[in-house]
Design a protein around this nucleic acid. Structure first.
Lengths: 119, 119
DNA sequence: CCAGGGCATAGCGTTAATGCTATATGCAGT
DNA sequence: ACTGCATATAGCATTAACGCTATGCCCTGG
């Protein structure tokens, strides 16, 4: 239909489709992660090609990801984060608990991967 | 080989294989996320079957996930988090920046999904 | 005007996560 | 001993993410 097919299209459709609330979240998540990574990349003055090389992937993969074309897998996110010298943080934080003020030392040299019950 | 095949086996193998540092991270991430979710589930006194129903999946899927049998996708994590009334937090936080003390209100009622350049 | 660099897409083959059903234990409770 | 519930696996079909290659477009420098 309309054959406009493009990642934007795909993303828009996913984010608009009702009944797929989870898919929606995931799509939005993908979108925002893409923008975040793009920001970090540009901040470093790197081209998609360079980031791709550093993360062990190709330019097209980076473009697809940055455009939110697909919901990235954790392995890929990890590689990108590592390439950008950043930490990939994935956590399932219960909302019940009154999360403590997160006494994060703001700079601890943890591993690239940071997981936890979040407080 | 040895045909012992089980998720533990799979996980162990993945976490042990050298040369796949990213895969390692991802596997460990999967493992820990699984334990976190299991903890939250038991904390609620739910059975895998119940959590599965609440998250729109089957008991086997939950078992597989909790055992770290596969690296979960974001959509699945989102559904599980939502079912457990928790927040799924995924972020790529640059290590360079001297992250500020995270002035997190410790209790804001954000969306289920929380993404950002992390400060 | 042409060349080069950077980014967006198209297509396609491969791989891995999901979903489901069925089954094997293990552990109470009766 | 039998029944029922919970968890671990097996096996299989589907789907989607990934990886790669090849273009197309745009913009800028020569």
């Amino acid at each position: 239909m309309t054959e406009r097919s493009s990642w934007e299209e795909i993303r828009d459709r996913r984010m608009g489709e009702p009944g797929a609330k989870e898919a929606y979240h995931a799509a939005e998540l993908a979108y925002q992660l893409g923008r975040t990574v793009r920001g970090l990349r540009e901040q470093r003055g790197w081209s998609q090609t360079e980031l791709a090389a550093a993360a062990g992937m190709t330019q097209s993969a980076v473009a697809r990801f940055e455009a939110g074309g697909t919901v990235p897998s954790l392995p890929v996110l990890d590689r990108l984060a590592t390439a950008l010298d950043a930490d990939l943080i994935v956590r399932v934080a219960p909302r019940d608990h009154v999360a403590r003020p997160t006494p994060e030392p703001a700079n601890r040299k943890r591993s690239v991967v940071d997981v936890g019950p979040a407080v």
